[in-house]
Design a protein around this nucleic acid. Structure first.
Ligand SMILES: [Mn+2]
Ligand SMILES: [Mn+2]
Ligand SMILES: [Zn+2]
Ligand SMILES: [Zn+2]
Lengths: 136, 136
DNA sequence: AATCTAATTGCAAGTAGATTGCACTTGTAA
DNA sequence: TTACAAGTGCAATCTACTTGCAATTAGATT
């Protein structure tokens, strides 16, 4: 698993540094969107600085290894890009559930055809906000 | 038009104050998502304080008169809730185009049926990020 | 293996958007 | 008209995030 992480970094032509290995380990272990704070909490016992976390998130995002997710929470969340999907978010307790499958592909290509000003779609957001059964 | 704004506020049981009337006027005039900064810029010549802008945005959002839009920009954007729709966003120049129609209703109800943990969807995001013809 | 160099890191300071406390003002219901 | 909860302005504060800079390190080159 650590080797897999190293492969991913080399593939992206990023230096294999402790911070990057640590962050990718965290993202691979937990299949949930993570904020910088979430990551920092997991790294409490290491000597990796908070600034390094922000800079590592930025480099991994730039290399398209992780992606931003808009959950309407206080801060930015990230996930591994390897398995594209969307989410339910409970606006009361904050719990997040993965949607099984991305079904908006057709809608996107149709929208693109109809658009006057746009020619390329590189990514999209699609998140559902509501109440989980516990909070409802 | 000013009367319409007052009606909207009374309907929502909000006091009709100069700040709320001003903000709703701005949102009604410009059919584009607006950040707090955008609004503040438009209010430069008035004596309405920046803090009041933030508080007014919050009260209008709570009353569901305006809604948050996630455009992956530096700050939060808002729009009138009265005509629900989604957007193309150019990640190079920032231009925003409205999508003609929201087509994700079916996907949402299907997702809800399949969900183990969620029972209510109150809102959703669906935005397309890419390049406009000028930037492409 | 030793050397080189650009990329990465840690620490401290800084920024920007947004929030809070509090005294004063105002909209509106009685 | 009066009463008072709601709204406002100003200053201070918070929080997520960024930047500058000197020291370190990954990985390429001898
Ligand atoms: Mn996810
Ligand atoms: Mn819009
Ligand atoms: Zn998708
Ligand atoms: Zn919609």
């Amino acid at each position: 698993m650590k080797n897999k992480v190293k492969e991913i970094l080399k593939e992206a032509k990023l230096k294999v540094t402790p911070a990057r290995v640590a962050l990718l380990g965290i993202f691979s272990a937990k299949c949930q969107p993570m904020s910088a704070d979430n990551v920092i909490a997991k790294l409490k016992r290491t000597k990796i600085d908070n600034v390094t976390v922000y800079r590592t998130l930025a480099s991994l995002e730039k290399a398209n290894i992780i992606q931003r997710v808009d959950l309407r929470k206080e801060s930015v969340y990230f996930e591994l890009s390897n398995h594209h999907h969307h989410h339910f978010v409970c606006t009361s307790c904050g719990v997040v559930e993965k949607l099984p499958k991305c079904n908006v592909g057709q809608i996107i290509s149709k929208s693109l055809k109809q658009s006057k000003r746009f020619s390329i779609v590189r990514s999209h957001s699609f998140e559902l906000f509501g109440l989980c059964k516990t909070c409802a």
